[in-house]
Amino acid sequence: MSCSAEARALEEEGTAAERKPTVDALLADDAFLAGDEEAARRIDDQIAVLLRETGLSRRDLVRVPVPYTTLGAETDGPMGAIAYSPSIANGLSLTARDYAAPDPHGPKVGGRDLSRTAAQKALAAGGVRVHWVENFAWSHLAGGEVHCATNALRDTSGGARWWSTGPGGR
């Protein structure tokens, strides 16, 4: 599925975003693309460390779509990158099979959010159901996502201590 020239990078309704460019406008924005590519390189570097230190493999990871934009150049804050839309990766595991993800407000084609569809497909392959949470105004715009703004209690008494089990927790 591809987007039409009019498809918005952020859904028109349901967000308080000041700027809602089309997908084509973002793809023509060299600064946006450079920032997204730099963020992708840095994420890949961190994934390499994660895989090396834990013994996990690339097939143990689930990739979900999240565009990034640079920040700091237009502000007095530190340079870096931040998710342009609510970051699906920054949700909250509710159970082994249920995941509360920030609604990405991605581009729509035929009334379907392409980001939601891609994430649901990727997570369903591992038997995980996605429950979408609206957090655009109360968390995303403040620089956080669902996992940042929630409390969760977990029973960790039955498992092995991850720091004493060796690479990969095995």
Rank of each mutant, 00 (worst) to 15 (best):
A5S: 14
E11W: 06
E12K: 11
R19A: 14
P21F: 05
A25P: 00
A25I: 03
A28G: 10
D30K: 07
A34L: 11
E38W: 05
I43A: 05
D44H: 08
D45A: 15
A48G: 06
R52Q: 14
T54G: 07
R59E: 15
D60S: 07
V66I: 15
P67A: 09
P67W: 10
Y68L: 08
Y68I: 01
Y68K: 01
G72C: 11
A73K: 14
E74Q: 13
D76Y: 07
I82S: 04
I82E: 04
I82G: 09
Y84M: 08
S87V: 00
S87C: 13
S93Y: 11
L94N: 05
T95Y: 04
A96E: 15
R97N: 12
R97A: 11
Y99M: 02
Y99P: 03
A100F: 10
P104H: 04
P104D: 11
G111V: 12
L114Q: 08
Q120E: 15
K121G: 06
A124G: 13
A125V: 03
R129N: 10
V133T: 07
V133R: 01
W138H: 10
W138E: 15
L141D: 07
E145P: 00
V146E: 00
H147M: 09
C148A: 03
C148W: 02
G158D: 13
W163H: 11
W163K: 08
S164T: 00
T165A: 12
G169T: 00
R170Y: 12
